[in-house]
């Protein structure tokens, strides 16, 4: 598998560390039922057959955390973006 890193270009997947689903957002620790929210944040993950937004870390490259949109059935990669940019969007959505 080749992952098109926005900084380094397409690189072999063995340069990256996989961190799974990018959807969970770290909950507010001060909120009511924070323990339940953190439980879901830490343990619950979707495992879709199809398009999946997931976190990859370019450990043997530019050290950037990336959000890779990948089809889990075909490994086709639709898009790659820096996680920090995604964060700004995520916060806006919240």
């Amino acid at each position: 598998m080749r992952i098109p890193c926005p900084h380094c270009g397409p690189r072999g997947h063995e340069e990256f560390a996989y961190h799974g689903d990018a959807a969970p957002i770290r909950p507010d620790p001060a909120a009511a039922e924070a323990e339940r929210a953190f439980g879901e944040y830490v343990y619950l993950r979707d495992n879709p057959a199809g398009l999946h937004r997931e976190l990859w870390y370019h450990a043997l490259g530019c050290l950037t955390w990336l959000i890779v949109e990948r089809d889990t059935r075909t490994h086709a990669i639709r898009g790659v973006a820096e996680a920090r940019a995604n964060h700004a969007q995520g916060q806006a959505a919240q």
Binding site: H19, Y57, L63, T64, W65, A83, R84
Partner: peptide, 17 residues
């Protein structure tokens, strides 16, 4: 050493940029 550095990068880039 490696995993803590990666964890710090995660915290910085993904959680609190």
């Amino acid at each position: 050493a490696g995993s803590v550095f990666q964890h710090m990068q995660f915290c910085h880039q993904v959680l609190w940029p």
